[in-house]
Design a protein around this nucleic acid. Structure first.
Lengths: 222, 222
DNA sequence: CACTATCCTGAGGATAACCTGAAAAATTGC
DNA sequence: GCAATTTTTCAGGTTATCCTCAGGATAGTG
């Protein structure tokens, strides 16, 4: 799971980062501008956004991201309790808000809630690429109507590939998303799981969907 | 990719240099002063900067470079874990920090992350010259809507040509960008890969886009 | 036109990237 | 706590890509 934290107060940012890093991969943007471009150019599972920042207002960032089809849940940090602001934040497309100061336990609880909600809710939880269907709720995968059973890691891998269907993804990116520890392993573990996935997804069929892009990584295509 | 390493401890500097040279072109400055002038007068893709140096403080160098519009990402090496210092370093314009001692795997991971971030941040990821389209994310190249598959080196070469479309580029420039090893052997390797590229990009079509500029190099044009 | 510098091309060996099977380690379920 | 399952590591084989080299073609020059 990858989280983007947009927060201009460096000390606050680092403290949050260190807390969350035990459970997630966390990237930090110290300006609204950086945050905006990172959010638009990467797939995060969650965005934490400070309301007040010197360059670009958090509210504006939020609106802008929604307009540009960034679907990740957004958690807003507001400086003090202010019903008015909360309403405005939610209207702008934020999914939840938290007023400073907050406890880290509470922060983590909200994050878990948002990540959970994202997985069980919303229309985007049936992935389709060609005639391959992955129902994330029911954990059911079908190709040409034929049921396929995958192990956990394979499911994560397939989900990530399908969410980026058509795009070439490096082994590093896959590793970061599917193996959510921050450590760097240089085994061929990604290759191996790609093979397992292929055995299930491609081997029994004519057309191969999982393609290796030599020198870069892999992609899935119809 | 060119990296500038500013580090006064000669032994440390050489060890880092040797490690990184497998993947990048590395230049070393052994004093802050040298580092400063090198950084200002050359275009590096990344600067690695020791926090503590006898002549000029790394922090000062960092600030100074940012003030002078040096945009390259800066990775700071700090002597020991110290949140305060990290904050100061980031405030000064550094992009990341690493506390000594560190493993070389970690160093390389951070470097890759910084270089990657820079690449995804800057500008669009779809290059177009005439009816030739290169989607850098998908690694998909099309001419007249027709898909073309290229190998890795050919893709790097094409990317470089397209980024400089209309301008003549020397073999040396191509070599420096596409072959990021520090080695200076001048075979006809660039020529060979230009041929490979032409076989894919030009041969099947009427109009030739990759042109030879006799005595100088090559260019790509619509 | 003839001469030279520059560029192009094809083939084969070297190398890096990728795939695979099997065994070891870790995790899960009873 | 043990067996079954899943995950990871490792080593070897296979394939695609890359580089070198040598000879042929082409452009520039007097």
């Amino acid at each position: 799971m990858r989280i983007l934290l947009i927060e201009d107060q460096v000390h606050m940012a680092l403290t949050i980062k260190e807390t969350l890093e035990k459970s997630y991969i966390v990237e930090v943007a110290y300006t609204g501008e950086d945050g905006l471009s990172l959010a638009q150019n990467n797939m995060y599972d969650l965005i934490i956004l400070d309301y007040i920042m010197p360059d670009i207002n958090g509210l504006f960032i939020c609106k802008h991201l929604r307009k540009n089809e960034v679907k990740a849940p957004i958690l807003m940090l507001t400086a003090q309790l202010d019903i008015q602001k909360k309403v405005i934040a939610l209207d702008a497309g934020a999914d939840d808000y938290l007023t400073k100061p907050f406890s880290f336990d509470e922060l983590q609880a909200r994050i878990r809630a948002l990540l959970r909600r994202k997985n069980t809710e919303s229309g985007s939880n049936i992935l389709t690429v060609g005639n391959l269907i992955f129902d994330l709720n029911k954990k059911v995968i079908k190709r040409d109507g034929q049921k396929i059973s995958l192990r956990r890691k394979e499911q994560y891998l397939l989900e990530y590939l399908m969410r980026n269907a058509g795009y070439t993804i490096t082994r590093e990116m896959i590793f970061d998303h599917v193996w959510d520890s921050a450590n760097e392993s240089f085994s061929n573990i990604v290759d191996v799981h790609i093979k397992y996935l292929r055995d299930q997804i491609d081997k029994p069929f004519d057309k191969k969907m999982i393609k290796t892009v030599h020198g870069f990584g892999y992609k899935i295509e119809a």
